[in-house]
Amino acid sequence: MTGETLHHAPGPSLQLLTQEIPVLIVDDLSKTYADGTQALAGINLSVHPGEIVALVGGSGCGKTTLLRLIAGLDQASGGCVQVDGETIREPHPDVGVVFQEARLLPWLDVADNVGFGLAGLTGSEHRGRVVGALERIGLAEHADRWPRELSGGQQQRVAIARAFVTIPRVLLLDEPFSALDAFTRRDLHDQLLNLWGEAKPTILLVTHDVGEAVTLADRVVVMRPRPGRLDETIVIGPARPRDPVAAHHENAVRRVMAALDRSLRPAAAHQPLAPEDRATWW
């Protein structure tokens, strides 16, 4: 499997990333609902090609809302989202999404679900891409099955394959592993990184799981609620694979936990940061 070797290869260096032009730019984005509830206020975020950024935060801090705006599924009240310099107003072929639930179309078999977004290919090209994607997630023998015949983990793998097979520039993952058990989740982390290693799309991952954020992301951005806005950023660094029992890993988890804890406190009680916890903005 080619993904295996890419998995262990070192990622692009931090210095190199910072010099590149961001592929995803979120500029002063805000969202206010019709009833006056302000869901998001002044979100600014730049993500570089091939970078994996995790968004963590408490419930109701607007993580999913932010992802839906970037995906073009909802309209922003102010500001804009740009992918490769192009403003996103509706779903864009360069932006793929994996939702919390697999959301496979139940009337299509596994292969047709994976190939659903593939357009403008000949029959054999189409088949080749689908079969390749299914092989890489280890579900080639399930190509003819109905989604209901798969386990939750298998369904989510199909959803991930469906998002990767169109080779998007930016991939948005909205808590894709939160409904799965810990073992399945670790397995899927590896498969996700394998798939990511091939075309290295930019990934924006929303998660509740700090361990997951630290395992997968180059940096972790903490959101704070009411209205949702970005708080601190903890840099994890590009080295992969990550060892979950390494001291460095545990330290990173602790730093994210501390930042989350601060984000949930009222703004007035916000203490100055200790030097090692200070937010690092790109």
Binding site: L73, L105, G117
Partner: peptide
Amino acid sequence: AYFDVARTLGASPSFLVLRVAVPAAL
């Protein structure tokens, strides 16, 4: 949710009707 998925995968409005709404309604 099916419409969201189909839209992010580049489905046009007519495609949404014929390939998502109709099978879902069957």
